[in-house]
Design a protein around this nucleic acid. Structure first.
Lengths: 335, 335
DNA sequence: CTGAAAGCGCTAACAG
DNA sequence: CTGTTAGCGCTTTCAG
């Protein structure tokens, strides 16, 4: 129960602790026999190196952290899985933090992670933070990768999907189907990713041969928000025939509002979402949506993080953007 | 960039490091003035205590780990959120591990976590492990809480929902609606929780005034599994009017098979699930299901873990079972 | 190839 | 109330 240390192994095998250390870490300059003997003793004693102690001297904890708003959000659990797999492959652990997008909480987490000497932090978004907090973050001397759109001037590395392109894809699809009375249902203003989706969408609609100007509704970026905005469309905007929502969950809310009112999808309304959440293929009707590679985003973020984790050789920030694609299912039809 | 240590603070404030330590940790026996002075210096220098150094001497890392099969599973992301919140409140961090139910991988994780000196491990299930591996685990001298049914003889603490009772609730509901040709769609045999759900279900059906013996189908416990078994029911068991699935995702698969065949829910088939996943209220029709308190399970598991984390005062294993409840939505109707 | 020794940053007796 | 002194378990010069 009381853990066996490197000293015990040294004593038991009649060599010095430094030799044990070298032998076990496969360093150069240990006689093969010695190495094997030490290894045998270590195994016999059930020796487990104490990584905390090692971390203290090497300065590297082999631990990364993932700060998301809420792991229950399917997007983040996908990202988390990709990140954890990548971290695992590299021999690192991943600490999970839920910030609820609360700036205070997010900063507290970062402080605490810094005290734990994590090698790097993977963060949801930093847009809720004040300018000052962001500068503070940047000056902390820890590797940080952000999970949102590339801000070219940002000192942080970023990984995200091509939200702009995704918005465009959605617009082109609706246009192609002949819709001209179109609504865009999105989250709060200035929500980084969603803003880009809206921007790509609006631009593509404006660039059409016969430009269309959609109705844009802002609300909560969840099921309830979608539901509420769906009801508003039903009540006040009778000409709308197609709706693009900034994420799938909002689409589900919109769909609920519509079907509840006895209207049909895609018969009366075409709706297209964004994300391609697991359940998008399961709902009825299956949702046409823009897919973004969530797992790969998590993986890539960790890979970048690891590349930047060594404070001795600084890298310039990297910005990686993943392509998205249209997944046609059954929630859209020609006008 | 080079971190400031307790020594720097000591030098700068003209006291000994031990005084700094005491002052900053709010221990007894430090002159109020001294404490404030030290605190001021620490703040000015931007001192951040190095927790790994502290952990080395105190023997406590203030880190817990959560080993689940896959965080993308909604059940686990709920549990993870509850666990993380509880850990955060207690000043602990949570390391996330995905085992894919692979015994080797699971044991490797545990080894690695042990080397990191985590204070406790919260684990999915241990049933995939061999008897020998389980004993090994138990003898490692680390606090472990399991997320599955209470095995009274188990040396591990456990937290789970009342799966037996949940199965019973489902049976009673279907019986109450007048169904007598009933199927149970479940996962692989010997899947701990699901086995209990089946058991509770079968018992309640057998205990009815006019006992009914259901058709029981085993398959993959995911959407595809549900879909396949749904098709089998359609093809080979024409008399079935009600289906209880061992989880919601399988219910979605069953529903898909049924609606795809042009049959209606709840008109032709009543279906009831288990879990009350977020999207159960979103699908069409909204799914009647047995709700288990996922978030609370995660919370409780961490609380127990923390209680057991101090190796100096051992506790006997705790077994906590959470009540479940029937959530009536629109996927069931009287025969 | 191996041992001795220093020290990572911090806490915890033990004196004073 | 505060300073001195040992380490925690490990890696890493530096000698030998």
């Amino acid at each position: 129960m009381v853990p066996v240390t490197i000293k015990d192994v040294a004593r038991e095998s009649g060599v010095n602790v430094s030799t044990v250390s070298r032998a076990l870490n496969g360093e150069y300059g240990v006689h093969a026999e010695t190495r094997e003997m030490v290894a045998a003793v270590a195994r016999r004693l059930g020796y487990r190196p104490n990584r905390v102690a090692r971390g203290l001297v090497t300065g590297r904890s082999h631990t990364l952290a993932l700060v998301v708003s809420d792991i229950r959000n399917h997007f983040f659990s996908e990202v988390a899985r990709g990140a954890e797999d990548a971290a695992y492959r590299a021999g690192h652990d991943l600490i999970l933090c839920n910030s609820d997008l609360d700036p205070e909480k997010q900063m507290r987490y970062v402080q605490s992670l810094l005290e734990k000497r994590v090698d790097g932090i993977l963060m949801n978004s930093v847009s809720v933070l004040s300018r000052k907090q962001q500068e503070q973050l940047a000056s902390m001397g820890i590797a940080i990768v952000l999970l949102n759109r590339a801000a070219p001037r940002s000192v942080f590395s970023t990984v995200c999907a091509d939200n702009l392109g995704g918005g465009r894809l959605a617009a082109e699809h609706l246009l192609r189907l002949g819709h001209r009375n179109i609504a865009h249902v999105t989250g709060p203003r200035h929500h980084g990713n969603m803003t880009d989706r809206a921007k790509g969408f609006l631009r593509a609609l404006a660039a059409a041969p016969r430009p269309v100007e959609p109705l844009v509704l802002y609300g909560k970026n969840n099921f309830t928000g979608g539901y509420e905005m769906g009801r508003e469309i039903l009540a006040s905007h009778p000409r709308i025939t197609a709706i693009f929502t900034a994420n799938d969950i909002m689409a589900f809310g919109v769909i609920r509002a519509i079907t509840e009112a006895g209207r049909r999808i895609p018969g009366d309304f075409s709706v297209i979402g964004f994300d391609d959440v697991e359940l998008s293929s399961i709902v009825n009707p299956p949702l046409t949506t823009i897919q973004q590679p969530k797992y790969e985003i998590g993986e890539a973020a960790v890979e970048i993080l690891l590349r930047h984790a060594d404070p001795k050789k600084p890298h310039p920030p990297e910005h990686r953007v993943f392509d998205v694609r249209l997944v046609e299912r059954q929630s859209c039809m020609p006008i």
